[in-house]
């Protein structure tokens, strides 16, 4: 083979690429097959809505070379998803949309052997507040009136939620303790089903994320009584917070994306960039506003620190519930 000028340049370039530092190559990591986009909840609820929204933004703006394929694994309060993700043989292609069951499920089911600190932080997309809702036909318009009604029902007041130890049940348990309420709690398989049964008045009240109840609120069927956020929400300026009522308690659902344990640094960096771009997109910022989520951006180290404090918080909350 005679070396012409042209293929000499080619060889030289090939040599450059071959000997360039590994880190520079690693920066180039791109998915080469579809990404398993696991959701810790069933279809239709808040977490699922967000996952589908993120996927749609990524598709619409052509942000990934390979698609995110949503995969609902909501069984056992997200235990199914945690086991699936921690046991994957392809950690670079497995990411998880989490909610607070990311903290509570491993605490409540220690036999699963899940250590969340082994997971890879990717992005904190925001935190979702909770609101206490009743049906308009109940005639209840204020939180105080609601407390009276629950007390008068004497143990027959029925609320729905997504399950013992889940986010809404923690909020309900706190209220029950603080006000001495006796509430009958019916577990459902997702926030969407809970909202539907409040609309049909199968249950009397719920603690739902605004996104899950918004449609019914706008149609005038649902009345918000109390928010569990730090401050009043811009979309619900007339709804008081529990803090205003003199209880130092606020509770949010994390909407975060994490990578499988053992994900390579290059892949983690890729997903970090991808979700930063999605976070900064007009669509996501619009979603945060319209669905009343609060932004809470964190880098990877801050996320790990946040996980530690959240695990401690939830340990205390679950202990207070007697779980």
């Amino acid at each position: 083979m005679s070396i012409t000028k042209r293929n000499f340049v080619g060889l030289a370039l090939a040599g450059l690429v071959a000997f360039s530092p590994l880190s520079a190559l690693a920066q180039e990591w791109k998915p080469r097959k579809p990404i398993d986009f696991v959701i810790m909840a069933g279809p239709g609820g808040g977490a699922d809505q967000i996952a589908r929204f993120i996927q749609s933004v990524a598709e619409k703006k052509d942000m990934t070379t390979r698609p995110l394929v949503p995969n609902n694994k909501g069984g056992g309060s997200g235990a199914e998803a945690l086991i699936h993700v921690s046991g994957t043989n392809d950690p670079d292609y497995t990411i998880l949309v989490t909610l607070n069951s990311f903290f509570t499920t491993p605490l409540r089911q220690p036999n699963l052997g899940i250590d969340i600190q082994t997971f890879t932080p990717v992005a904190m997309m925001g935190v979702d507040p909770f609101v206490l809702w009743v049906h308009k036909d109940s005639g209840i318009t204020s939180f105080e009136q609601w407390v009276e009604t629950v007390k008068a029902a004497d143990g027959d007041y029925v609320m729905g939620g997504t399950g013992k130890g889940q986010e809404d049940s923690i909020v309900i348990a706190y209220m029950s303790n603080a006000y001495g309420l006796d509430i009958k709690y019916i577990p459902y398989d997702g926030g969407g089903a809970v909202a539907k049964d409040l609309a049909g008045q199968q249950i009397m009240a719920t603690v739902n994320n605004p996104a899950e109840a918004k449609g019914f609120y706008e149609a005038g069927d649902f009345v918000p009584l109390l928010a569990f956020s730090d401050e009043r929400m811009p979309a619900y300026p007339d709804v008081p917070t529990l803090k205003e009522k003199g209880h130092d308690f606020s509770y949010y659902n994390q909407r975060a994306v994490v990578g499988a344990p053992g994900m390579s640094d290059a892949a983690a960096a890729y997903y970090g960039d991808l979700f930063t771009a999605i976070y900064e997109s007009e669509e996501w910022q619009g979603y945060l506003t319209s669905e009343s989520l609060s932004p809470l951006w964190m880098d990877a180290d801050e996320q790990r620190a946040y996980w530690t404090t959240q695990v401690e918080n939830h340990k205390a909350l679950l202990a207070a519930m007697g779980e």
């Binding site: 699922d48 589908r52 933004v57 619409k60 949503p70």
Partner: peptide, 10 residues
């Protein structure tokens, strides 16, 4: 329909 719902939201 859950997937359709995701599409409609976007």
């Amino acid at each position: 329909t859950a997937i359709l719902l995701g599409g409609m939201v976007i």
